[in-house]
Write a protein that binds this DNA or RNA. Structure first.
Lengths: 217, 217
DNA sequence: ACAATACATACCGCTGGACGGTATATATAA
DNA sequence: TTATATATACCGTCCAGCGGTATGTATTGT
């Protein structure tokens, strides 16, 4: 094989394979050769034609992983029929829903053995999610009266950190019961900080994930 | 030079040099050769006699970094003259105090370029600090009536995460004003979650770090 | 036609780590 | 005390494998 008419396909294949290997073995313990072997029919030159470095590959992988999330976030943010609080609710709804039928999360034994991924996730959480998505929504909620806080920035960072890292089973493994407890704690925390995000619908969903149906205290 | 009578000295030298280099250039970008050069008079074999791998060096470095912290934590935990809430206060006092005359923190440009360190810090925060130190203290506080929460475990993890990672200038660079805002937010958060940790003394200290003196709302 | 692209191949400097050897310290016994 | 045995603290060297590069070649678009 020499030249391909559709290089995007090749790029996508490289990213697919790299993603799987990075998640399986960790970024540090995955070699370029591993990627080549898994691809089967490509050469080193091919990879280094499309990516300047190994680091650039993981950046592309992570970017791709977050594209769908960012899109749905942007969609919610732009929805003019919702006030600030309702947007936060919807974000939680999507987020908690996703978290539990995560496909990847079975393949990865421990995120702490993949420090690069963890660091990038943490960075994204604060500088992309918190500052660019959550904080504006919180400010909107303060303006429209649906949310009450004197610290929108700090609250945005805290909520993002808790929801995206602490509650993330890929980072901190936990049982259904533990996830449930975390959610209930988060519900109380949010409410006491002026964001009544967990309405009945969202609470019901959390209960259902736990395996129960009703919503008692 | 052949055999040294006091190998602890050699080990300490290796860890000193490694710590500085890891913090300066990051774990991944520090080579064994860098460590050897900085030491000047040791060989690769010497290092691999004391440590099985490069990874084992950083583990030892981090362990050593946390020894003093753990000791002071254990001391506070064992102090029978304090109730649960008072112990939490004291921990905050020490923690926030330390955070600001951190020597290392100037040398390190960005913790995100040192993913290994970051991951280890995060792991320590949850599994050592939160579970082994904070949670027992919170439970103690609940028992003696000085703290009110239905979720000691989740609260412990959250507080530890916020204080040790989010508030840590080595992880998230911020101005004095931003640190101040974070502290004030944390004060409100803790209080609304049943832990009135920031008394006047602690609040004063935070104000002082900001460069102010009085304690107004 | 020919320039640009998409690869393949061969190679490089360096890395973490393995290994065999040696000098010194320490415990034991004579 | 001294002799012996063994454990420890290092040194010097070597190597497979790593990320990355330079260059060659086939295919495509214009």
């Amino acid at each position: 094989m020499a030249r391909n008419k559709y290089p995007e396909v090749t790029i996508a294949r490289i990213l697919d394979v790299a993603e799987q290997l990075f998640l399986e073995k960790g970024y540090e313990h995955t070699t370029i050769q591993d990627i080549l072997n898994a691809l089967g029919d490509l050469s080193k030159g091919a990879i280094y034609h499309h990516f300047k470095s190994k680091e650039e590959i993981i950046i592309a992988v992570v970017d791709r992983l977050y594209v769908s999330t960012e899109e749905s976030c942007a969609e919610i943010q732009a929805d003019k029929s919702l006030n600030g609080l309702q947007k936060i609710r919807k974000l939680f709804y999507v987020s908690i829903g996703n978290a539990n039928h995560q496909v990847v999360f079975e393949t990865m034994p421990n995120f702490f053995e993949n420090p690069k991924f963890l660091a990038m996730q943490l960075e994204q959480t604060i500088y992309e999610l918190a500052h660019k998505i959550i904080e504006p929504i919180l400010c909107e909620g303060v303006a429209d009266g649906s949310i009450h806080t004197a610290y929108p920035k700090e609250l945005a960072e805290t909520v993002s950190l808790l929801a995206n890292i602490w509650l993330n089973p890929m980072v901190f493994h936990c049982t259904k019961q533990e996830v449930y407890n975390k959610c209930m704690f988060l519900k109380a925390l949010m409410k006491s900080l002026g964001v009544d995000a967990f309405d009945d619908e969202l609470t019901d969903m959390v209960e259902r994930l736990r395996g129960f149906a009703s919503h008692d205290a």
